[in-house]
Design a protein around this nucleic acid. Structure first.
Length: 269
DNA sequence: GGGTGATGCTGAG
DNA sequence: TCAGCCTCACCCC
């Protein structure tokens, strides 16, 4: 379930669970990361940093573990030793208070700080790292001659947005996914950034993407909502818009499915 | 038990 | 543009 909120939340929770500056037991039950695990085993972590959908684990001996979950990668956090790893467990890190399992990542490599810097240099501003990336976001967006629905998935424009957030952010800002990036007003661009900061922070805290204002669905809190009830448009084609009851429409933008409300997000002229 | 799609991205063509 | 990759939850039989 990897958009930016997942990486930041994991960086925070895993640092707590594993403990910093104490030696970790690292291994690769599946074997596909045996060489990397051997480099890290017995060493201590200095910090865990998330940047967009990328995670960088800084080890005291100077190496960096680079993880990107991709579409299907998953972490499991367990107190103590956790269960027996399965044949798909790529990485196990056991520390002070618990154990982290990793399965199915797109990237799991040991790199050096220069290589880390190269990866980060390609990324746009990450709303969870600093709320003050709005100007850079606007600059990057302005260089793109593509629909805003495609630009939001481009990690060099904004880092950490995935398919759920792009649909929800465009709904929350009333922008049609096919609006050309270059046709957005300054106010719309600013609203997209501001809304990203807000929504990603909430998702990082809750551990799930819940964008619905609880009073729109008669709920007490966002935390009481779930994937069925907690989004405005994502995977809701054919269902009534929570605001105006117009039927939510499914389209494809940048080869990925995207949903919008034709009334709340009018097609650009 | 098999088939499929998924919150992602790359590299070949 | 599109197949390929990685894993698993979910659906249908």
């Amino acid at each position: 379930m990897p958009e930016g909120h997942v990486t930041h939340r994991n960086a925070r929770l895993q640092a707590d669970l594993l403990g910093l500056n104490g030696p970790l037991d690292v291994n690769s039950p599946q074997g596909r990361f045996s060489d990397g695990a051997a480099l890290l085993d017995g060493h201590a972590l200095e910090s865990i940093e998330a940047y967009g959908k990328h995670m960088f684990y800084h080890w005291t001996m100077g190496q960096v573990l680079h993880i990107h979950l991709g579409l299907i990668g998953k972490f499991q956090l367990h107190p103590g030793d956790g269960p027996t790893p399965t044949e798909n467990t790529r990485l196990v890190m056991k520390g002070q208070d618990g154990t982290v399992f990793l399965a199915g990542p797109m990237i799991c490599n040991v790199i050096n700080p220069d290589e880390e810097a190269t990866v980060i240099a390609k990324l746009g501003p990450d709303p969870l790292r600093s709320a003050r990336g709005g100007r850079k976001f606007a600059e990057r967006l302005a260089t793109k001659r593509i629909p805003v629905g495609a630009a939001l998935l481009d990690q060099s424009v904004m880092a950490g947005i995935g398919n759920v957030f792009r649909a929800e952010l465009l709904f929350l800002t009333g922008i049609h996914p096919n609006t050309p990036s270059s046709a957005l007003t300054d106010a719309q661009t600013a609203a997209l950034w501001k809304q990203s900061v807000t929504e990603l922070r909430i998702a990082e805290e809750i551990g799930d993407i819940i964008t619905v204002n609880p009073r729109h669905v008669g709920a007490r809190s966002r935390k009481s909502l779930n994937r069925e009830t907690g989004v405005y448009v994502y995977k809701r084609d054919g269902l009534p818009c929570r605001i105006c009851e117009t039927e939510i429409v499914l389209e494809e933008v940048a080869s990925r499915k995207i949903w919008h409300c034709p009334r709340c997000q009018p097609r650009p002229a």
